[in-house]
């Protein structure tokens, strides 16, 4: 859902879900645990978010449940190739 009058057409950067990894943004995360609670295979998604690491567990179904449930937009789908080394602290400049 774009914002009418803000975007014209689909933003080109949006990636298809098929791209496949759930990627957290630690800077938006408050460790509430909704993601972990809703993971159908009990992955501790929240821990990945704390560490700022993509959910690279081979069991992840990429079902999107955590992405959809997160109340703060912490999680999104992306390709591993999009991820540069990113740690807390680097971004705070």
């Amino acid at each position: 859902m774009g914002i009418r009058g803000i975007f014209q057409g689909k933003p080109s950067h949006r990636k298809a879900l098929a791209d496949g990894y759930v990627i957290p943004d630690s800077f938006r995360c408050v460790q509430c645990g909704i993601c972990t609670y809703n993971c159908p295979i009990d992955l501790d998604v929240r821990r990945y978010a704390w560490l700022g690491s993509p959910i690279n567990n081979s069991h992840c179904l990429t079902c999107g449940e955590c992405v959809a449930r997160c109340p703060r937009g912490v999680l999104r789908f992306g390709r591993l190739s999009d991820i540069t080394q990113q740690h807390l602290g680097e971004r705070n400049t």
């Binding site: 460790q31 509430c32 645990g33 909704i34 972990t36 609670y37 929240r46 821990r47 704390w50 109340p71």
Partner: peptide
Amino acid sequence: NEIPQQLLFP
């Protein structure tokens, strides 16, 4: 009621 108490602990 979106999470139970035990999920509050990271």
